[in-house]
Simulated scan of single mutants.
Amino acid sequence: MTIRHLKIFIAVYNERNMTMAANKLFITQPSVSQAIKELENYYGVELFERISNKLYVTESGKKVYQYAKHIMKLFDELEDGLKENAPKKKLIIGANYTVGVVLIHKYIKKFNSLYSNSEIKVIVNKASILKEMLRKNELDLALIEEIKNESDFIEDFFYNDRIVVVADPEHPLFQQNEVTAYDVVNEHLLLREKGAGVRNLFELKMNQIGLVIEPYWESTSTTALINAAENKIGIAVLPFELVKDHIDSGCLRELKVKDIDLSRKLIVIYHKDKFLTSAMKDFIEICHEL
């Protein structure tokens, strides 16, 4: 097995077509077919099923792809390091919305002060997307909310966070002596979309006490939900760090909900098979320090 085999395999995996993979790599289609056959013979497994002239990836093929992406990334890093007299510290970091909007800027600033010749690319998205990118080796690290029972990742806690329920200061619920989850569930709920960490945590906590939520609004935009709450459309459930300024200015007010705990931890996460470069280790350390 060679690097050439892995490059061809990755191209076929991505294109799901040997002719298209051959065109992408500027080689002949028989060369692609032969390389895939050699890989299958080497490992003694079938990587693709051929059905009606279409390719379908097998479970073995999916596993080989995960490792192939890691191997090729390391190979590229090796080449970059050997070719440059003063190699750049290159990182691709994923961040959930809380980290991407509020926190990551100070981590990057500190990292750049240590390594002036550095490049950091940031991708902000929800945790479910970032985890899949880590599995495909499209990210080095991700800074997201705590996850559970995913054995292919290493987690490293770095920040205590919490979710808050906020509304216009004149909302009737503020007139009550205490507000419970039962009060909240009957209001117009302004929530992030399914799969977002803040939505998952809120839904889990409500379900644990026997309540089912029915969103009035759903949005991928935190700004849209904040504006809706300020305009008295309903109550929003969002990370504290993202609404802190709106609470401080008096545009929104936090509802203290008696019977649910919406605290959470933020973590640095990376794939268990990922080789941690010195740049990655330094970035993780900066997250702990600041």
Rank of each mutant, 00 (worst) to 15 (best):
K69T: 12
P169C: 04
Y115K: 09
S278H: 06
G250Q: 13
N200S: 15
L252H: 01
A236F: 08
G94E: 03
K90G: 09
A22C: 07
G210P: 13
D273P: 05
C251F: 11
L266M: 15
T19R: 15
L39P: 02
I3Y: 13
E218R: 13
S118D: 04
R4S: 11
L189Q: 00
D282C: 14
I213N: 04
R253D: 10
L242D: 07
D248E: 15
E49V: 07
L201R: 07
P169S: 05
T58G: 07
K89Q: 14
I51N: 12
A236H: 06
K272H: 08
I108H: 06
R199G: 00
K63E: 10
M18S: 05
A95M: 03
K62L: 07
K148Y: 11
Y107N: 01
E187W: 02
V268M: 10
I27R: 03
N186E: 12
Y216M: 09
S278V: 07
R199S: 05
G44M: 10
E170A: 13
V101F: 04
E214Y: 12
L91I: 09
K7V: 11
G195W: 06
K126L: 10
L276E: 05
V179E: 02
E79G: 13
N17S: 12
N200W: 00
N85F: 11
L262R: 07
K148F: 10
I71G: 07
G81S: 12
Y67N: 11
K83W: 05
T58F: 03
A224F: 03
E218F: 04
K194Y: 13
V122C: 07
I104Y: 00
D140M: 01
A68P: 03
I163M: 10
I51Y: 09
K110T: 15
V12P: 01
M18K: 10
Q208Y: 06
A35Q: 08
L139N: 02
F174D: 06
L189D: 00
T277M: 05
E40A: 11
L238S: 00
A196K: 06
F202S: 00
E241A: 15
A167F: 00
K232Q: 12
A228N: 01
K272Y: 04
G94R: 03
S263G: 12
L190R: 02
I51L: 10
L39D: 02
V45N: 06
E218P: 02
E49M: 09
V165R: 03
E254P: 04
G197V: 02
T220I: 09
A228M: 08
R135D: 08
M206N: 10
A127Q: 06
L39H: 05
N177V: 05
H271D: 12
I284Y: 01
Q176N: 12
L6K: 06
S52R: 13
I269E: 06
H70T: 14
T220N: 11
S151G: 03
L103T: 09
S116D: 10
F283V: 03
Q34Y: 11
W217P: 00
A196H: 10
L190P: 00
A21H: 02
I267P: 00
